[in-house]
Design a protein around this nucleic acid. Structure first.
Length: 167
DNA sequence: TCGAAGATTCTA
DNA sequence: AGAATCTTCGAA
């Protein structure tokens, strides 16, 4: 909140966990990059990929079981004009319907890595809810590396028929 | 050190 | 279908 407050509602996410999940960055143990996955839950794990994109994750397990949730898409709620300014598109559905798009729209980058998202700060989580008509779906994760087993795990979750879901 | 691959997006 | 673009990690 620097005067350009933005609020978005998460509508799509994917789970990644170490040890048993070859697709997870935590699979081979802690490194300089993935250490937030080995810390307390509710903290930001933000990493850079493809030479241009930031990915926003939330650490999601106690240290004994490293893991994180990749936030893949969100529904703009407030500050849509600031999101559009950064994304350089006007159609609201294009603002945050992908992990890198969402990070760009919400100004999420490596400076937020490790941030406690359960405390009020530059970026934080608040409780949300589903409407009576909404339903959560699950299925295989999008374009994950790793073996066939990893690719078939239904660890992608999204709100059914929500127009802001990616892809 | 070196090199390949990458939890993507945009354009042609 | 291919490029953009650079960090990370495992192997040498």
């Amino acid at each position: 909140d620097d005067g350009r407050r933005m609020v978005a509602r998460i509508v799509e996410a994917e789970g990644y966990r170490g040890q048993e999940d070859p697709a997870s960055h935590a699979f081979r143990g802690p490194t300089a990059r993935n250490y937030p996955m080995f810390g307390p839950p509710g903290h930001a794990y933000v990493y850079f990929i493809y030479g241009m994109h930031w990915m926003f994750n939330i650490s999601a397990h106690p240290p004994e079981m490293p893991g994180a949730i990749l936030i893949r898409a969100a529904e703009p709620v407030l500050g849509t004009e600031w999101m559009a300014e950064r994304r350089k598109v006007s159609r609201s559905v294009e603002l945050t319907n992908g992990p890198a798009k969402l990070a760009q729209a919400l100004e999420i980058d490596g400076t937020l890595n490790g941030l406690d998202l359960c405390q009020r700060g530059p970026l934080f989580l608040v409780d949300g809810s589903l409407t009576a008509a909404e339903e959560v779906m699950s299925g295989p994760r999008i374009r994950v590396p790793g073996d066939a087993v990893a690719r078939h795990r239904p660890w992608r979750f999204w709100i059914k028929d929500n127009p802001y879901v990616s892809r």
